[in-house]
């Protein structure tokens, strides 16, 4: 059906475009504009061309934040996506009462992130923390660590917490996907003598592959948005060992009051995130057979 007026389509999309422009477009343009300036937030804005970007590429700590972010991505792809996938496989096994497990695994997703961060800070605490107390109890005092104060363990410790939270989230996604696998297919396989493991690896996994790719993309882009866990648990320390882009940004803008430089760091991060996402989409294989939704 053709619209009654040639303006009708524009009127229909107008509100959405206006809203997007207001909440995304204008801040984006403002951030890009500020990235070419030196501004503390209160003084007169001074145009300095590309100086902020040159500084960013020479900033040791800023470069280090990307290393940490990509380590975090690699770790969470395993601890969140892969573990979530495995959990989904377990809770989708036929004949088992899995609702309790599904709820249990999903509970961390519903808890406030700051609460989780504080809770795990106590678990990791050197003095009376659950882990170190357990190690002492089993006679391995020598294994005690300052988990969040040692650069060799701090980042991994945060990754574990992140996995603890989001594995349940990805489990829910994969579980929904696995539930869409045609029962007739599974029944036929069972009649042919397939075990639950066979059903999982040879039917469910291939059929939810597309969902796995989406989950991985969510995990990767979500990693760039991480902030609260890192900020509450370590504030980027010790010695920048857990510094990620967002914690460094906050420090730059709100502690050092370098709004212009912070804007430049944001622009670079946006380019990296978009580039990573596009690269990922490009690398995705398109010949798979997915579950139809």
């Amino acid at each position: 059906m053709r619209p009654s007026s040639r303006w009708t389509p524009y009127l229909l999309v107008g509100p959405a475009v206006a809203f997007f422009t207001f909440v995304v477009g204008l801040p984006l343009i403002g951030t890009i504009a500020l990235s070419f300036t030196k501004w503390s937030g209160t003084n007169r804005i001074k145009f300095i061309g590309l100086d902020n970007f040159v500084r960013a590429f020479h900033d040791d700590v800023y470069r280090l934040t990307y290393v940490h972010t990509f380590i975090y991505i690699a770790a969470t792809l395993v601890l969140e996506v892969a573990v979530g996938f495995g959990l989904a496989g377990l809770v989708s096994v036929q004949g088992k009462r899995t609702a309790w497990y599904r709820v249990t695994f999903f509970i961390p997703v519903m808890l406030p992130m700051v609460v989780i961060a504080v809770l795990w800070s106590f678990i990791y605490s050197d003095d009376g923390g659950l882990i170190n107390s357990f190690l002492t109890a089993i006679g391995h005092d020598d294994w005690r660590q300052v988990w969040l104060g040692d650069p060799s363990t701090a980042l991994l410790a945060i990754c574990v917490v992140s996995g603890w939270i989001y594995a349940g989230f990805y489990m829910a996604i994969f579980y929904a996907g696995m539930q869409r696998v045609p029962q007739s297919l599974l029944e036929a396989a069972r009649l042919d003598g397939a075990s639950e493991a066979d059903l999982f690896f040879k039917i469910k996994v291939p059929l939810v592959r597309g969902m796995t790719e989406v989950a991985a993309l969510l995990c990767i882009t979500g990693a760039f948005q991480s902030f609260d866990l890192f900020y509450v648990m370590t504030k980027g320390g010790p010695d920048h060992a857990t510094e990620i882009v967002t914690t460094y940004l906050v420090s730059t803008v709100f502690v050092d009051h370098e709004v212009g430089y912070g804007a430049a760091l944001s622009v670079v991060m946006s380019v990296v995130v978009i580039g990573t996402g596009l690269l990922y989409v490009k690398l995705r294989r398109g010949d798979g057979v997915d579950v139809e939704y």
Partner: peptide, 8 residues
Amino acid sequence: INRSVDAL
């Protein structure tokens, strides 16, 4: 000094 100094 406490060894947890930088984490506390």
